[in-house]
Simulated assay, not measured.
Amino acid sequence: MKKLQIFTFLLLSVLMATLQARAEIVDRIVAFVNDEIITLHELNTAFEPYRKKIDDSYKGTDKDRIMSETRLTLLNRMIDNLLIEQEAKKSAIAVSDEEVMASIRDNLARRKTTMDAFQQSLAREGTNFEDYKKEMRDSMVRTRLLRREVRSKVTVNDEEIGEYYRLHREEYEGKDAVKLKHILLLFPGNMDENAKAKLQADAMEILKRLRMGESFDSLAARFSQGPAASDGGNVGFVEKGAMLPEVEKAAFSLDRDKISDLIESPVGFHIIKVIDRRGPGLKPIEEVRAEIKSRLEDGKIEKKFDSWISELRAKSLVEIKL
């Protein structure tokens, strides 16, 4: 009887050790960011959409390397976001509940939807309005911090605008062209009607989410199989004659900042958004000054942000344990 008790105790000890080891694998610390941590569970949850996209669309032999590099890039982005949140708290940047609600109401007005419909949409996605308000508040705090620390320190003068125009004249002349963002779901090989119907339903769901106001860049990065997916679907200016006929017809019939209906071509289903358009011939600098200034500002802001976040990392305790 005593031997049986000892054996039972040893068996339970082994089982407990195994369970503990599994728990460590399932969830452990993957990064220290000052006095906060990022867990493996948090990283895996954030990485899942990227993992699925790579798994579904990438057929190369180095898929594991692509997965690993993308995962590390995402972890570094999560670290940067956490550093920004910490810096915002130190700076005592506050956003009132009234400001958050005003921003939400503005968004709903642009989407032409009601608060009830929006809350129902959140429920279908497994979240709630209070969580959404917190995300909105955090986003507004980060925006104010970055405006103070980055954007306010960037300027573009007339000489820089003129020099850019002189060096990039070809961008402002040529055929009729449209500047597009593009989401593409490719037809798989040996596709049957059921597979096509499923793909069409997926594309329609993406279009529905766009019409509800979700970010084109975000949805393109997650779902598009087009060449510009990693850049939010931004393919830049495309001249007449350089697109598939079905896509070109839609592109040149859309007004600026409008999203197309679902477009079917021989290669798949497309959704496009027209960002800008230009006609043949050289545009005078007066017409493109604001566009050039915005482009130069964006480039400077990106460099300034990289410098600022590097300085923030340098003075912080950041340790990656992946």
Results as ranks from 00 to 15, higher is better:
Met1Gln: 11
Lys2Ala: 07
Phe9Lys: 00
Leu12Ala: 09
Ala23Glu: 15
Val26Ala: 15
Val26Tyr: 14
Asn34Ser: 05
Asn34Tyr: 02
Asp35Tyr: 02
Ile38Val: 02
Asn44Trp: 04
Ala46His: 12
Ala46Ile: 01
Glu48Pro: 09
Tyr50Gln: 15
Lys52Trp: 12
Asp56Cys: 04
Lys63Pro: 10
Lys63Phe: 08
Glu85Asn: 12
Glu98His: 10
Glu98Tyr: 09
Ala102Asp: 09
Leu108Lys: 04
Arg110Cys: 08
Phe118His: 04
Leu122Trp: 08
Ala123Gln: 04
Ala123Asn: 02
Glu125Phe: 00
Asp131Ala: 13
Tyr132Trp: 09
Lys134Tyr: 11
Glu135Ala: 14
Asp158Met: 12
Asp158Lys: 11
Gly162Met: 14
Glu171Asn: 09
Leu180Ser: 07
Phe187Lys: 10
Gly189Val: 12
Asn194Gln: 13
Asp202Trp: 06
Leu210Ile: 00
Arg211Ala: 02
Ser218Tyr: 14
Leu219Pro: 07
Val235Pro: 04
Ala250Leu: 00
Ala251Val: 01
Leu254Val: 02
Ser260Pro: 03
Ile263Phe: 05
Val267Ala: 13
Phe269Met: 06
Ile272Trp: 00
Val274Trp: 06
Arg278Lys: 11
Pro284Lys: 04
Ile285Trp: 06
Glu287Pro: 03
Glu291Asn: 09
Asp298Gly: 13
Lys304Asn: 13
Phe305Tyr: 15
Ile309Val: 10
